[in-house]
């Protein structure tokens, strides 16, 4: 009986030590702040923050749109003028 008791006591002591080590390891890893480098990992190129230079191409698209609307309306009016419906 004493032998069994001794085995249990030693086993329990071993388990306690093991458990305490695991808990301690987890606590230390969760409380240790992750080192953060002030240096960004990726250094990009400079941004393009001015688009005023695209004014010409954008204006051309707007002119094209106006021409298309004018052509469309002309066709619509003509179809009514000549009774082509």
């Amino acid at each position: 009986m004493d032998k069994i008791k001794k085995i249990f006591t030693r086993g329990f002591a071993l388990l306690s030590i093991l458990g305490a080590s695991i808990v301690n390891a987890q606590v230390s890893s969760s409380t240790t702040p992750t080192p953060v480098s002030p240096t960004p990992i990726t250094t990009p190129g400079v941004p393009t923050t001015g688009l005023g230079g695209m004014l010409v191409s954008n204006a051309a698209m707007i002119v094209l749109a106006i021409i298309l609307v004018a052509i469309g309306l002309t066709l619509l009016i003509k179809s009514k003028d000549y009774g082509l419906e």
Binding site: M61, I66, L68, G72, L73, L84
Partner: peptide, 26 residues
């Protein structure tokens, strides 16, 4: 009838191109 449909289509296309250009660039 065909002219009317073509006319409406072209006008709508023009309106779409114009609107998209203005919104994107603005």
């Amino acid at each position: 009838m065909q002219k009317k449909v073509i006319g409406i289509s072209i006008a709508i296309l023009g309106i779409i191109i114009g609107t998209v250009t203005v919104i994107r660039s603005t």
